[in-house]
C-alpha cells in the first residue's frame, strides 16, 4: 500500500516525512509492546502504536521500520520528534484509536506480517 493511501485512510497529520507518497508499505504491525514489534515485524512495515514515546521510534529504527503511526491524536514530545528526524523515520499522527486505525487500514487492503 502506498504511503499516501495510509495517510489518507487514517486522516493522519504528517509530523516528519522521509519517504515519498508513492513508496510502498507492505505490512502492518499494531502493538504497544516493543519486543513484539522486534519479534514479529518485518521491514517495510508500518508500526501503529499508542506508545507515543521515543522508545517507539528507537524500536522502529532497530527493526528497519520506516513509518510509525501514533494513535488517538496524541502529540509526541520534542525529543521523540527529534529522534524521528535524526533516524529519518516518517512519523504520522492519526486521530483514531488503534482499533479504528487497524480497521481502516485493513479495509483499505493492508495486511499483517506473515509469521
Amino acid at each position: 500500500m502506498k504511503l499516501e493511501r495510509i495517510i489518507h485512510s487514517l486522516d493522519a497529520v504528517v509530523i516528519t516525512k522521509f519517504m515519498s507518497d508513492g513508496d510502498e508499505i507492505e505490512w502492518a504491525c499494531a502493538t504497544d509492546l516493543m519486543s513484539e514489534v522486534l519479534y514479529y515485524s518485518k521491514d517495510s512495515s508500518v508500526l501503529i502504536t499508542g506508545l507515543t514515546k521515543q522508545q517507539a521510534i528507537r524500536t522502529a529504527d532497530i527493526a528497519d521500520i520506516r513509518v510509525v503511526v501514533f494513535t488517538r491524536g496524541k502529540e509526541p514530545d520534542t525529543p521523540t520528534i527529534e529522534l524521528a528526524n535524526e533516524k529519518r523515520i516518517t512519523l504520522l499522527i492519526t486521530p483514531y484509536s488503534m482499533f479504528t486505525a487497524c480497521g481502516r487500514l485493513y479495509e483499505a487492503g493492508l495486511r499483517c506480517c506473515p509469521e
Binding site: 509492546l33 516493543m34 519486543s35 513484539e36 522486534l38 502504536t49 506508545l51 514515546k53 522508545q55 517507539a56
Partner: peptide, 8 residues
C-alpha cells in the same frame, strides 16, 4: 513503558 512483555 512498552517493555516487559516476556519476549526479550
Amino acid at each position: 513503558m512498552g517493555w516487559g512483555s516476556g519476549m526479550g
